[in-house]
């Protein structure tokens, strides 16, 4: 299985699903030079949001810890610990802040 992310150009293969550690993220470099943070949860479900932490500007969200709040998955920034919903990109600690999310899917390795 591979993890694929939809960008302007279409579905982009990022990595093998098996190379992701559940509860942990990785960063992916996108064709336009921007970065996505890709995660997989315990159930094997993938998520993708922007890698840039809007509070510091550093590209580090992929290095945060994943958790669940009220049944929804989030990542906590490793710098100043603000949490972001992995499905909507909304910041759970400052409701006016959000990061972009990417459609993501797993596909059988061809």
């Amino acid at each position: 299985m591979t993890v694929e992310l939809r960008v302007k150009e279409g579905w982009l293969t990022v990595c093998e699903l098996s190379s992701l550690t559940p509860g942990r993220g990785v960063a992916a470099l996108l064709p336009d030079g921007s970065q996505a943070a890709v995660f997989v949860d315990r159930a094997g479900r993938p998520y993708a949001i922007a890698n840039q932490d809007p509070f510091t500007g550093a590209h580090v969200l992929s290095r945060g810890l994943v958790g669940t709040l009220s049944g929804r998955p989030f990542v906590a920034s490793p710098l100043l610990k603000q949490r972001f919903d992995l499905e909507s990109g909304r910041c759970l600690d400052h409701e006016e802040v959000a990061v972009r999310t990417y459609p993501v899917r797993t596909a059988a390795t061809s």
Binding site: T21, P22, G23, A58, V60, R63, L65, P78
Partner: peptide, 21 residues
């Protein structure tokens, strides 16, 4: 193994994260 998913980024990379990543 699973321990990898528990550690803060500092422990994860065995180094201290700085403000610019």
């Amino acid at each position: 193994g699973e321990q990898a998913a528990l550690q803060d980024t500092n422990d994860h990379f065995l180094a201290n994260l700085q403000r610019n990543g």
